[in-house]
């Protein structure tokens, strides 16, 4: 399982998922789908990355 996650982490971020998070057109329950814990973790990492970047911009 870890090796599959490692593969996922080596890949560029999936553009479809990223778009969904950035555009926020869908409800949160759909974007952060808790029925698949790994997908949720993946999405949360995108969110974290997004939030981190914004904060850095604000500091500038």
């Amino acid at each position: 399982m870890k090796s599959i996650w490692d593969v996922l982490m080596r890949l560029p971020t999936n553009i479809n998922i990223k778009k969904k998070i950035y555009l926020l057109n869908d409800p949160w329950e759909t974007i952060l789908d808790s029925s698949n814990i790994y997908r949720l973790l993946y999405c949360l990492q995108i969110v974290e990355e997004f939030a981190y970047d914004r904060e850095r911009e604000r500091n500038k």
């Binding site: 399982m1 599959i4 593969v7 996922l8 890949l11 999936n14 998922i17 698949n36 790994y38």
Partner: peptide, 8 residues
């Protein structure tokens, strides 16, 4: 990508 999540 879906396949990877499915595997996980």
């Amino acid at each position: 990508i879906d396949l990877l999540f499915s595997l996980l």
